[in-house]
Design a protein around this nucleic acid. Structure first.
Lengths: 86, 86, 86, 86
DNA sequence: ACTCCAATACTTTAGC
DNA sequence: GCTAAAGTATTGGAGT
């Protein structure tokens, strides 16, 4: 038949959808690659005798506000004291 | 027609499947109820001036092995010291 | 000395804190017991030839609103159609 | 005083630790930037009338093995049939 | 400010 | 036992 099976508008939408999905997929691949790089850094550090869990804790702590952290530590120690954990 | 639409065996399997699903659903409801109770305890504590985040940290710490925790703290402080965080 | 080492108020707060923590711990134990029960149901089902992953999917689906689900399925199929996944 | 406060080896380890931490932090920043890009794509798609949840489902499905998915769907429909969900 | 939801990170479990 | 997948918990962000 001479009539196209899909209208121009439908074709356009189709391409748009495909484009969205593929952009996300490409970004997800990049994100995964970086996550793998991070794992590799920790694995190498571990091989050199570092404690990966402690390294992760350090990274997390450096992101936090120092004042907020200090305050939290104070509360925590108060509770631990009251519970005989110190 | 007089013939039953489902065999006895199929009916049996159907009931078995239904039973499995419903047992899980009942247990999930109970689990949810307990999770809600826990939330309520924290909410009440918060209303009485406690820091919910610190309380959760205490609960987590009490589950851990004290020796392992002490060792972890030591490593952490070594790293913090080296990075000028103390 | 005759003076108590802790004031009455502090002692009270201490007990209150301990009570909060212990209530949470008890509830967490109950929650864990139920989670184990659920695992046991799935393990038994699996031993009887059921697909645990599919069972979990069924349980999840039954929690959802049927209308919302139907609508979602429609959209999903539209997208899949447009991407040649059907 | 003439004696250095830190030995050469300690200084070296310190730099190594700092290097590890900073490499991870740089990678985390890159990872965050990509995550933000992904969010932006979904936000834009949503503004153009797409259902973000369905788009995410499509992305997930395209990562899966088609045969495995088909088989899973078959089992799922068997269960749904048996439970009167179809 | 406070709740609700989505996203991330962690923990645990299942499969190879 | 180890990698990979699920489930769970915590955190950040959006909206009221």
């Amino acid at each position: 038949m001479s009539k196209p099976s899909k209208s121009r508008a439908e074709k356009f939408a189709k391409d748009e959808l495909k484009s969205i999905i593929e952009r996300v997929e490409r970004l997800l691949e990049e994100k995964k690659a970086i996550a793998d790089d991070i794992s590799a850094v920790y694995a190498e550090a571990k091989a050199n005798g570092y404690d990966a869990k402690a390294l992760k804790t350090i990274v997390r702590m450096r992101k936090e506000d120092p004042n907020a952290r200090a305050e939290f530590e104070t509360i925590l120690e108060t509770y631990m004291q009251a519970l005989g954990m110190l």
